[in-house]
């Protein structure tokens, strides 16, 4: 009986801890996943998978390394596994425009002109990032969105820092090209 009670208490503590972690790092992880998979619903599914993995590995996690870096790495690997899977290759994303409609409803009360302009630019930038090749997109996500250094990005993606720099340069050029094309339209 005592063992069961202790086990229950331990589980409750673990659940509380994971809830705290989700509230602290959840937003950033969800956005990161969205940047990878371009679909909010899929990103939410992967979000759950990511934090299940975090919960599983929490007892083995060494607190000497940064927990945010560790969770980000798990999220990136989860997203990459999803993109590699055969299921993802067959399913086409349909909810891209649904997200736009949600945004429209939320911003209903803001000034119409500002909203339209800002939305258009942000949409263009986000779409341009999502349009990038996988290897460029992950470098942009880490450096621009997660604001990681080149070394941290190299460590996170398990590639040399020189490769990160070269990929960043090519990604920048590609982004410029895409945005110029969109600005001209």
């Amino acid at each position: 009986m005592k063992d069961k009670m202790q086990e229950k208490e331990q589980n409750q503590e673990k659940n509380q801890r994971i809830e705290e972690i989700i509230r602290t790092y959840g937003d950033e992880i969800l956005r990161l996943l969205y940047l990878y998979v371009k679909d909010l619903d899929t990103a939410k599914d992967l979000f759950q998978d990511t934090f299940v993995k975090v919960h599983m590995g929490l007892k083995d996690f060494r607190s000497e390394s940064n927990i945010k870096t560790w969770i980000t790495r798990i999220a990136i690997n989860t997203a990459k596994d999803y993109l590699k899977s055969a299921w993802n290759r067959k399913v086409s994303t349909l909810s891209e425009y649904d997200t736009e409609s949600e945004i429209d409803i939320r911003d209903e009360n803001t000034r119409v002109e500002e909203t339209v302009v800002n939305k258009d630019i942000r949409k263009n930038v986000r779409d341009a990032v999502l349009e990038l090749k996988e290897e460029y997109k992950e470098v942009i996500t880490c450096v621009y969105f997660l604001e990681m250094s080149v070394e941290t990005t190299a460590n996170q993606l398990s590639i040399p820092p020189g490769t990160v720099k070269s990929r960043l340069s090519r990604a920048r050029s590609a982004l410029k090209e895409i945005l110029e094309r969109r600005g001209l339209q």
Binding site: N15, I18, E19, I22, R23, G26, D27, L30, R31, Y34, L35, L40, A43, K44, F47, Q48, F51, V52, T99, E102, I103, R106, D107, N118, I121, R122, K123, V125, R126, V129, I140, Y144, F145, E147, L175
Partner: peptide, 25 residues
């Protein structure tokens, strides 16, 4: 420019709600 626009875009649109937290738990 990219940092600010990308971040603001994602921060406005994509947020973790209570429902997602409950589902994850």
């Amino acid at each position: 420019f990219i940092k600010s626009e990308l971040k603001s875009s994602l921060m406005e649109d994509i947020k973790v709600d209570e429902e997602l937290i409950c589902k994850t738990v």
